[in-house]
């Protein structure tokens, strides 16, 4: 669905371009260099602060089921987990620089396994080697980790 409609009157001197009017309400942002594509959004309704929504929910949405979406990106086990789990299989591998649609398959792929066994991690290993490891403290007793005092 197009959110724009053709401009009826082309301006004089205007090149053969199909200018389209953005439906209101809208917001448009363009770099003043005019070298980049404008970004814009036509909204069905101008957002508004809705005092009728009781605190502490966002005042920006009347739709109750949407109220908790934003800002909760890192919590888990709140019912959207299942959907996220499916989505989590899809992503971008920064190591292989490619998009995958199945995390498990990708991580098992030859290219990824080659990467993870390669020396790209030396930067991390070097850093870790400079950390004085307080965990040395644990060593002696950890020979028998299951032997709990309680």
């Amino acid at each position: 669905k197009k959110r724009t409609k053709p401009e009826s009157k082309p301006r004089p001197g205007f090149p053969k371009s199909q200018a389209q009017r953005i439906n209101t309400p809208f917001i448009k942002v363009e770099d003043t260099s005019r070298h980049y594509r404008p970004i814009y959004a036509a909204m069905s309704k101008m957002p508004e602060i809705n005092m009728a929504i009781a605190p502490p929910c966002t005042p920006f949405c009347g739709d109750k089921k949407d109220q908790h979406k934003n800002g909760h990106s890192e919590e888990w086990g709140h019912g959207r987990a299942k959907k996220n789990r499916a989505k989590k299989q899809v992503g971008f591998c920064e190591c292989c620089m490619l998009q995958y649609d199945n995390l498990i398959k990708h991580v098992q792929s030859e290219s990824h396994r080659a990467f993870s066994k390669g020396n790209e991690y030396s930067v991390l290993d070097r850093l870790v080697s400079t950390m004085h490891c307080d965990l040395a403290l644990f060593k002696p007793k950890n020979k028998r980790p299951k032997c709990s005092v309680s």
Partner: peptide, 23 residues
């Protein structure tokens, strides 16, 4: 201060920007 969490709601940048403009 307003006891609202989250305050701005909207996953799209320009909708977020509009909400900022409203405030």
């Amino acid at each position: 201060l307003s006891n609202r969490y989250p305050f701005f709601k909207g996953s799209e940048d320009l909708v977020s920007l509009t909400q900022i403009m409203i405030v």
